[in-house]
Amino acid sequence: MSDNSLRLVWIYPDLLSTYGDQGNALVVERRARQRGLDVQRVDVRSDQQIPTSGDIYLIGGGEDRPQRLASERLIRDGGLSRAVSNGAIVFSVCAGYQILGHEFINDLGERQQGLGLLDVVSTRGEGERCVGDVLADIDPQLGLPPLTGFENHQGVTHLGKTARPFAKVRFGKGNGVGDGFEGAYNDTVFGTYMHGPVMARNPHIADLLIKLALDVNALPPVEDRWYEALRQERIAAATQPA
C-alpha cells in the first residue's frame, strides 16, 4: 500500500479467466473504492511482465493447457515470487491455486513444477469431477463467516506442513483428499477451489485481503444486502440434496 492507492493486479486473464474470474477483481475493486480507497487495477497478460509493486494479486481458474502455459510463464517471469517475498497478498482459485503449489499434473499428464508459494502438491483425481455448490467453515483464526462457492474440478490437493487448511467442508468436496479440507493458506498467500466467483458469494474474503494489504483490523461497513441474500440462498442450496 503506497500513497493511499491500492494496487490490484489480475494475473493472466488471457489464460486464467475461464470461470468468471474477473468477478473477484471487480468485487475487491468495488469494496475498496466504497471504503474511499483509490484503486489501481492492472490486468497483466501472459506476454507482459508481472509488476512487483502490487498490494493484492489475483489468479483465476483455467483449462489444462493454459494452466501449464501460465505456470511456465510465471516461473520465467519471477515477478510474483518477488512480490510475495516483499509481503504482497495473493489470492488464487482452482488452476491458479495449483500453480502456486509445488507441483500439479498438466494437460500432458505429466507432473509440472509450480511456484512453490504455497506448501501444497496437487494431483488429478480418478473419480468424477467435483461439480456443485459447496458450504464450508473457514479457519476460525481468520474470523470469517461460512464459505459458499461452486466447485468444478478434478484436482486433489495435499497440504504440507507450512500450509493451513483454508476451510473445512460441510457439503461438497474441496481439496478432494477425503479429509474434508478446502483450500490452503499461509501468512499472505491463499488458494481455493471455489468459483462462483468466490468473492461475489463471500465479500468478507475481499475485505480480508484489503485489511491485510492496509495492515488494519477493521474497515468501515458497506451495504451487503444483496450479497447476504445470495449467501443465504446458496447456503440453503448446498445443504439440500440436488
Binding site: S17, G20, L26, V131, G132, P197
Partner: peptide
Amino acid sequence: GTDTSWLWD
C-alpha cells in the same frame, strides 16, 4: 448450465 459464474464475464 448450473454454474452462474459466466455472469461476471
